[in-house]
Design a protein around this nucleic acid. Structure first.
Length: 416
RNA sequence: GGAGAAGUGGGAGAGUGGUUGAAUCCGCGCCCCUGCUAAGGGUGUGUAGGAGCAAUCCUACCGAGGGUUCGAAUCCCUCCUUCUCCA
């Protein structure tokens, strides 16, 4: 959530930043106005409430002293009508402002380039050079079916489109990758955490998926519970509502979960293969830090994810996302794109974001700095998306006959 | 699934309708005293929002949300969580 105090103090500065992310001037004006309305309503209510409290106290004194209370009671009752009305006004203003504020995205960092789509993202660097093939490299679904690693038809039979079933080496590789990634992250100092795959509404509001993106989430029928779209949600919300002691920071976590997404806005895109599925495995990094160290941690996370790809000998590049490609909660994001020779292009395999205090403010995650409670910075990033890593291994390590070489670092995980 | 008990400040733990934002103890901060196997005394110690240069004041919060009442941590209802016993 954006800082409503900043809205009062520096409306122009805030507006300028948010308009870079496509927030309309109307919405900003509305937000400012509704914030004022609430403030006025609050003061009005609190004054009446103070009067009520004072008179009620007096009432107690009267009773004890045996005085006549009728006149006082009449005054209190008259005031109470006003209190009720003022409370109603205040509540209404509160609901309106909250709904508005919760749907405003985070401010992009000044360092984030302006842009209208992903073509305006900026390449930071390339790591490893794609190898030259002496034959036309196949796409991963062809290889997957040829090797009997993945069965898309049976996935569809069980669950519909965008589901698949993995067999034998396909299944084993998924498991090996998950273990490899978790171990890799652990060695970098991230604590391994195993979390629920279902969370409540509050958690999703904390990280910013709700209220705006409910259409992308699978909801549990009859309950206010959702399947997580990413482990970022449970990992970050682990500390929801908490005040973390100063010396506990930074908190660095890694966790593996399946991720569940409706992909409502992606109709027709990547329908083939396992690039975009409703359920996929992902190993996630989440860090909770002070603002002073969040940039350092951010770079560490990018390095960690990139180094995993390097260890797997997969060529990739780092992309700094432009304003329009930035997610709802992100102040800045670096994507890692892996080279897919079958598709002859780089595809996103990891997205690492610094949300600054945006999520912390929503989820009320703070730390003690001396006497003051300060909002933490939260960061998240995939390290890595397992399915897409498998895709990259298939496409990059394919031989002319369709066989696939297993990366050396994974062999110990496969009893090879 | 059924029966019961409980959820209070950093921790422990009082508090069944008014002066209780909350006794007391522990912990922690500061100050003082004392001097040798060490304790004693004083004082302070929640969060959020608002008013004020400030001192300070106002509002809300005793698991969550409603209700009763002039007034609720305290009574009633619903929900959540934990524990015990039964199935």
């Amino acid at each position: 959530m954006i800082d409503l105090k900043l809205l009062q103090k520096d409306f122009d500065g805030l507006s300028k930043k948010l308009m870079r992310k496509g927030v309309s001037a109307e919405l900003l004006g509305d937000l400012k106005e509704k914030n004022e309305t609430l403030k006025v309503a609050k003061v009005a209510f609190e004054e009446l409430q103070a009067a009520r409290n004072a008179m009620s106290k007096e009432f107690g004194v009267y009773k004890r002293e045996g005085k006549d209370i009728n006149e006082l009671k009449a005054r209190i009752e008259a005031n109470n009508l006003k209190v009720d009305a003022a409370l109603e006004v205040q509540r209404e203003a509160q609901v309106i402002l909250e709904a508005l504020a919760m749907s405003v995205p985070n401010m992009p960092d000044d360092s984030v380039p302006d842009g209208t789509d992903e073509n305006d993202n900026i390449e930071i660097k390339k790591v490893l050079t794609p190898k030259e093939f002496t034959f036309k490299p196949k796409e991963h679904w062809e290889l997957a079916e040829q090797n009997n690693w993945i069965d898309f038809e049976r996935g569809a039979k069980l669950s519909g489109s965008r589901f698949s079933v993995s067999f034998d080496m396909g299944a084993k590789l998924e498991r090996a990758l998950i273990n490899f990634m978790l171990n890799f992250n652990s060695k970098r100092g991230y604590h391994e955490v195993s979390v629920p795959h279902m969370v409540n509404r509050t958690a999703l509001e904390g990280t910013g998926q709700l209220p705006k993106f409910e259409n992308d989430l699978y909801k549990i029928e009859g309950q206010d519970m959702f399947l997580i779209p990413t482990a970022e949600v449970p990992l970050t919300n682990l500390f929801q509502g908490e005040i973390i002691p100063y010396d506990k920071l930074p908190i660095k976590m890694t966790g593996y979960t399946s991720c569940y997404r409706k992909e409502a806005g992606a109709a027709g895109r990547d329908t083939r293969g396992m690039i975009r599925q409703h359920q996929f495995h992902k190993v996630e990094l989440v860090c909770i830090t002070k603002s002073e160290t969040s940039d350092t941690i951010f770079n560490e996370m990018i390095e960690c994810a990139s180094d995993i790809l390097t260890a797997l000998e997969l060529p990739h590049r780092l992309m700094q996302l432009c304003t329009s490609d930035l997610g709802f909660g992100a102040a800045k994001t670096t994507d890692i794109e892996v080279w897919l020779p079958g598709q002859n292009q780089y595809r996103e395999i990891s997205s690492i974001s610094n949300t600054r205090d945006f999520q912390a403010r929503r989820a009320k995650i703070r730390y003690k700095d001396g006497k003051k409670n300060v909002f933490v910075n939260t960061l998240n990033g995939s390290s890595l998306a397992v399915g897409r890593t498998l895709v990259a291994i298939m496409e990059n390590n394919q031989n002319e006959d369709g066989s696939i070489d297993i990366p050396e670092v994974l062999k110990p995980y496969l009893d090879m």
